[in-house]
């Protein structure tokens, strides 16, 4: 028969593994990402609506961005027609961040909450708040020329 205290410790460890997530969160208030829509462009909108339905944006905005990136970089196609028939320029910096210009309080806030570290910001995004134009990739920065 194994010594009682060894088994006691073992059981405490086993239960402890499952208790950790409960203990860490104990007494914490409800927390959500608290993203902000307070940007000049969104405030100016009559109907507050993203490019696609909000449900789709919440779940699949990265899929959309991937399509955009491939479309622009591989096919040189900059035009995106949304489900509602609106035409947008496929640009992370000018379209997404045009409306969501509060990148830190929108994209980053939610990504921090969901533990997503975007490597996109190495090149995209208005990292330099003093001089945004310097870091935004614009049409003038096109590195890839279309095939004739």
């Amino acid at each position: 028969m194994t010594k009682k205290w060894t088994i006691g410790i073992f059981i405490v460890i086993v239960i402890g593994i499952f208790a950790v997530p409960f203990l860490v969160n104990a007494g914490q208030p409800e927390r959500d990402p608290e993203v902000s829509y307070d940007t000049p462009q969104i405030n100016a909108m009559e109907v507050k609506q993203c490019i696609e339905p909000t449900e789709y944006m919440k779940e699949s905005h990265m899929v959309l961005l991937d399509e955009w990136r491939n479309s622009v970089v591989r096919d040189g196609n900059y035009e995106y027609r949304s489900q509602s028939g609106q035409i947008y320029e496929m640009s992370l910096d000018e379209t997404c961040l045009g409306c969501h210009s509060n990148q830190a309080d929108f994209c980053d806030k939610c990504h921090e909450y969901s533990s997503v570290e975007l490597y996109c910001w190495q090149c995209h995004g208005n990292v330099d708040t003093e001089n945004p134009e310097a870091t935004i990739i614009t049409d003038d920065d096109v590195l890839f020329t279309e095939k004739a």
Partner: peptide
Amino acid sequence: FRVDIAGVKE
């Protein structure tokens, strides 16, 4: 089929 991860986390 994506899910809303932030929603799941809540």
